[in-house]
Write a protein that binds this DNA or RNA. Structure first.
Lengths: 346, 346
DNA sequence: ATGAAAGCGCTAACAA
DNA sequence: TTGTTAGCGCTTTCAT
């Protein structure tokens, strides 16, 4: 039984127990060069016997903390869980541990969160869909190895991992057009960002929607509700769109979470999906596949993105300084929520 | 523009810039006693001018890291997001920051995660629905202030915050019985835990289901599928239950996530909800309220639980050692997924 | 009220 | 290969 205030075992305890120097112990736990097998054995035995665990905080004062900071805007989107799982998998056989922090919905809160990460001396930072300006991201990247997910701008200070949102959005709009829809509306996301609009994924999805509509001669049918990428946002955005006259026959929500809300709004309006209104989302979260949702959606592999982010970040921690960009190509998963207009589909 | 390798501003920089001792600066940033207003001013100005931020890692070597570790099994359940938001709110005007770590689905991985938290010298730990044995939790609690969420056992070493799962499960079963159901089945969760079964929420929900069935004379109708509290688990559990003959007229899934899968299985079987089978969940996640889900569910306030956990933990960090237990009373939210058996409801 | 200095548990020069 | 020792940036006695 461990006593309440018991002092933690330190490297010095291990050293004296193994009858060696602290340097030797330090070298062993770091797998550094210059230790004989015999020494290694003695030290490892002592570590076992005493149950020693290096204190990351103390290591951080000189070297690394073996901590990777993952900034997530929130934890309500199952897509983020896929990213986390990918990252965790990539870190699995290393000494690094991923810690998450919630970035929140405003730049101010996000900044505090990222500062908190740096104050804790994490060895590297992964930011998912940050709101910060490129300048701020580069400031962070100059201080710590950094990988940015889901932002499109090109920087020479950090690595980027992102989905080709233009391709994804194009898949959706062309799919709806091919079904015969003309009055296709879109729900986009309003943020508090300081980034260049064109670098944010929701703006890319939105702009692509407009472009494709134009290219097909439906510039006049463009209808965008600016709301939020969450259920409530999708619900409100869809309500607004459905109240227009004539009302759209299809709604492309920029994210599954918003699409769920849109489905709700359609039902509430006494309309049915897809007979009266088709609905499509983006992210292909698990929920989209549920039989009473069956949402047509764009699949982007979060696991692959998380693994890539982890790999790139570790490379940077090990010394790489050149910037790398990793792109994931999305694909469309057609389900029951989209069909030809006028109830002729199923 | 910040130079790439630029050294971080330290307390010594602030001290020399303000022409005072490092001790003085330290006192100011800790709001400690024994500083004149003039001194305070000088120091604060210097901190501003240099953009100084204390390094949590260094502070941790002697004092606190101002870091709270939150262990979550995973981030797929929106209910956890409510807990996190409550905690974040509670910590908002303090110097503490919450960091999350994923505990995973096995004791081994969970143990690594919690060890990682302790190695980083967090000031306190909050564990949500841990798999560890009570003995292990107490070991952790002896080393760090600890609050455990969603476990029912009584310990004098850590604080507990939990929902009255017995009351919640009873609400569901009695609701279904009152509707006229007899063949009520249950989907429970299978874990890897070393805890006493009676301390785990899914076992309490399950045992309560059995007890209430017995008390109403339906011991023979008890049917339990042991699966998992996630979509796939609910789907498989429901498939198994629906294949029994006679098949149940109602399914009580121990968690909304599982209920979503159960809904899918019912649809897939060509049956409708609630006409053929009623389905109820637990957690009242946002999804339950969606019009094409309308899941009857038990509401437990995650925000309140998160706030309580934060408050209790800070109290412990400040020195309290006596154990506190905080219970949340659940309520039933009846929606369209439950009705009288035989299609007479809606 | 203020400051000097020891020390937290490590890592990394440097010596031996 | 092994050990000695000087810090890393703070907090905390303990003098003044």
């Amino acid at each position: 039984m461990v006593a309440p205030g018991r002092r933690r075992v330190t490297i010095a305890d291990v050293a004296s127990h193994a009858q060696v120097s602290v340097t030797a112990v330090s070298k062993v736990i770091r797998n550094a060069y210059g230790v004989s097998p015999a020494m290694k054995d003695k030290v490892k035995t002592a570590i076992q016997e005493l149950g020693y665990r290096p204190q990351a905080v103390a290591r951080g004062m000189r070297g690394r903390t073996f901590t990777i900071g993952l900034m997530l805007p929130h934890i309500r989107n199952p897509f983020f869980a896929d990213i986390l799982d990918g990252l965790t998998e990539q870190l699995d056989n290393t000494d690094y541990q991923a810690f998450m922090i919630q970035g929140g919905a405003t730049r101010k809160v996000e900044r505090r969160a990222v500062d908190a990460l740096m104050d804790r001396q994490v060895d590297g930072i992964i930011m998912v869909a940050p709101l910060a300006s490129k300048a701020r991201l580069e400031e962070v990247a100059k201080e710590k190895p950094t990988v940015v997910l889901a932002r499109h701008e090109r920087s020479s200070y950090y690595d980027s991992v992102y989905d080709d949102d233009e391709a994804g959005a194009e898949l959706v709009v062309k799919h709806l057009l091919a079904l015969g829809h003309r009055r296709i509306a879109h729900i986009t996301h309003q943020d508090d960002s300081q980034a260049r609009p064109a670098d944010l994924l929701h703006n890319i999805r939105s702009a692509t929607y407009e472009r494709v509509m134009r290219e097909h001669g439906f510039a006049d049918e463009i209808a965008i509700a600016t709301s939020f990428y969450h259920e409530k946002g999708g619900y409100e955005g869809a309500r607004e769109l459905l109240s227009r006259s004539p009302r759209p026959t299809a709604i492309f929500a920029g994210a599954d979470q918003a699409a769920l809300g849109a489905l709700a709004a359609v039902h509430e309006a006494g309309l049915s999906v897809p007979a009266d209104v088709s609905v499509a989302g983006y992210d292909n979260t698990h929920l989209a596949a549920l039989p009473n949702i069956t949402l047509t959606s764009v699949d982007q592999d979060g696991g692959v993105m998380g693994r890539a982010a982890g790999k790139l970040l570790l490379e940077r921690v090990e010394g790489r300084t050149s910037a790398v960009r990793f792109t994931v190509t999305p694909s469309l998963v057609v389900r029951g929520s989209t069909a030809a207009p006028g109830g002729s589909g199923g």
